[in-house]
Structure formats: C-alpha cells, structure tokens
Simulated assay, not measured.
Amino acid sequence: MDRTVTEPGTFEFEDTVDTLCVRIVGGAVNVVGVDEGPARLEVTEIDGPPLKIERRGSTLTVAYDDLSWKGLLKWHDRHGWRRRAVISLAVPQGTSVEVGVIGAGAVISGISGSTVVQGVNGDTTLVGLTGPVKANTVGGNVEAQSVSGDLRVNTVSGDLTVVEGSGSEVRADSVSGSMVLDLDPSAGAQIQLTTVSGEIAIRIPEQGDADVDANTTSGHVSCAFEELQVTGLWGVKRISGRVGSGGAKLKATTVSGAIALLRRPPLEDAPSFRKDI
C-alpha cells in the first residue's frame, strides 16, 4: 500500500509490521510499542509537501520522498524548513525502529526491537527501551530513561542525560555536549564516555561494583567515593580504582570539561538526581 498524506488523519495497518522507518522535517514524531492490535499512524498536523506512506512486506515507511536516510544528516533545502508534520505511531513492541528528524523532536518508548535515531536540531527522548539503541544527533539533546538495552550515542553539541540506565554497554561520544548519567551497571557492563569540552557527571549506586578510570586534561574533578584515588594537581587529573568488587568497567575522558563521580544513596534515602547534579 502506497499513499500520500496531505491533511491530518488516522491510518491502521492490519498486516504485520516488524520494521518502521520515519523521516520528517519540523514538528514531532512519537513512536510507542504496544502489546496488541494493528499498527496505527495518526497525523495531527501537516504543512508543506505531502508525506508518503509506503508498505513493502512487513516494513512501514512514513517519510518525504526527497529525504533519504543516508543523506539525512547532510540534507540542505532552504524551502524544506517550511515543512512541518506532527505524527504518532503505535507499533508492536518487537518492531525495529529507524527515526530521522530535522528540526523536529522525537520520542520513542516501549520498544524491545532495535532503535536507531538520527537528528539535526531536534531533541530525542528514549523511554523504556530494552533493545539495542543508537542515536546520532547534530545540535540536539538526547535523554534516555530506564533504557536497559545497549546504548550508543554520538552528538556534536547536544547534551546526553541517562536516568536509571542499566544496559550492559553504554558508549557516548560528543564534541561539546555535556553528559549526565545515573547508572546501575550490571556485572561486566562496559561504559565508555568521551567528550572534548563537555562536562561529565556520573552517579552509581553506593554499593556499586565498577573499575573506574576517569580523566580530564584541564578540567576540575570531584569524587564521592573514598576508595577511589584522585591524582594530578596540575594538568591531567584522574579518578581511578575499584568500587566494590569491580566487574563493570567505567571509563570517561574529557579534554577541558569537568568530571564528577557521585554516589547514589539507598533508594529510600535518595533525593532527586537532578537536584544532586
């Protein structure tokens, strides 16, 4: 089934959907995983060129004809910024999701399949994802809440916030974006954070088990764990050592940004994370 969308409306897809591809300019896209029922698309706002709905087997695509996935991060069209679409999709939880946004926000929740997001000048929110996640943004922030799948994030100037992260792998790279992470790494978890000028703040449980190696070339450091060693009064400063029995690997590097390693108190005593940082 192929059709174009020029006005608000709701669409249902009775056949199986196991892959979703979305590419929009302006506005917002919301994708939610559901237990049962057919996949559904609701277009609440649309301005500019029509969106195209395309079905190929079990793949559902909602996108502009002239906006390809490979060219999304390099797409330049002065007339394109007049476009706007606000859409919501409900798909089976196991669906593999690809979302590309330019000047638009994206919210993806409840998906257990793989999730890939590419964004330019739009914020991305990821909630309750259990499958592997990749997010690449230029000038957009990424917030991940209760994500238990492996998480890989690349940003240019966007900030990364992770709340209640428990995946076995977290890898994040940024040029100037800051990183604020609340983690409960499982045994053997691999966490690697790198930024040039952004600040890094990490909070792990009081009884956490992690080998830590965090350093900054010219920024300040602070550490709430007495069992870790802070070295370097001038130039490169490093926080290193083991919390608990180790197991997880935590490595963080920034050139000019500050690094803070914070202790999360027991849940019954824990204040809001955002007030801690």
Score class of each variant (00 low, 15 high):
Pro265Gln: 13
Ala104Met: 04
Arg3Thr: 07
Thr6Arg: 12
Gly122Glu: 02
Val236Phe: 14
Asp211Trp: 07
Ala258Pro: 12
Asn141Trp: 09
Glu12Phe: 08
Val133Ala: 11
Ser157Gln: 14
Leu181Ile: 03
Val153Trp: 06
Asp65Leu: 09
Tyr64Leu: 07
Gly232Ala: 12
Ser176Tyr: 06
Ser218Phe: 07
Thr59Gln: 12
Gly140Thr: 05
Thr44Tyr: 01
His76Met: 14
Val116Gln: 12
Lys249Arg: 08
Asn141Met: 09
Thr124Leu: 13
Asp211Ser: 10
Ala252Leu: 04
Val255Arg: 05
Ser146Met: 14
Thr155Phe: 05
Ser109Trp: 10
Met179Ser: 11
Val153Lys: 03
Val243Pro: 04
Asn136Cys: 15
Ser256Glu: 11
Asn121Met: 10
Ala106Thr: 04
Gly131Gln: 10
Phe273Asp: 14
Gly241Val: 05
Trp75Phe: 12
Gly37Pro: 03
Pro271Trp: 08
Ser178Asp: 15
Leu67Asp: 04
Val196Gln: 14
Arg264Val: 01
Pro266Arg: 12
Ala90Pro: 00
Pro49Arg: 03
Asp123Pro: 09
Asp211Tyr: 07
Gly37Tyr: 02
Val17Leu: 08
Asn154Cys: 14
Asp159Ser: 07
Leu41Arg: 00
Asp269Tyr: 03
Pro8Leu: 06
Arg40Lys: 10
Thr161Asp: 14
Asp2Cys: 11
Glu227Ala: 11
Pro265Thr: 08
Val162Arg: 01
Ala28Gly: 02
Ile53His: 04
Thr44Asp: 08
Ala187Val: 03
Ile200Val: 07
Lys249Ser: 13
Val175His: 11
Tyr64Gly: 05
Ser245Met: 14
Val62Asn: 03
His76Val: 09
Thr19Ser: 14
Ala270Ser: 09
Val163Glu: 10
Val156Ala: 13
Leu129Trp: 06
Gln207Val: 05
Ser240Phe: 11
Ile87Asn: 05
Ile24Val: 00
Val212Cys: 08
Gly9Ile: 01
Leu262Thr: 03
Gly122Tyr: 02
Thr61His: 04
Asn136Trp: 11
Asp77Gln: 03
Gln93Pro: 06
Thr125Ser: 13
Ser245Thr: 09
Leu261Asp: 08
Phe13Ile: 02
Val153Thr: 07
Lys134Phe: 14
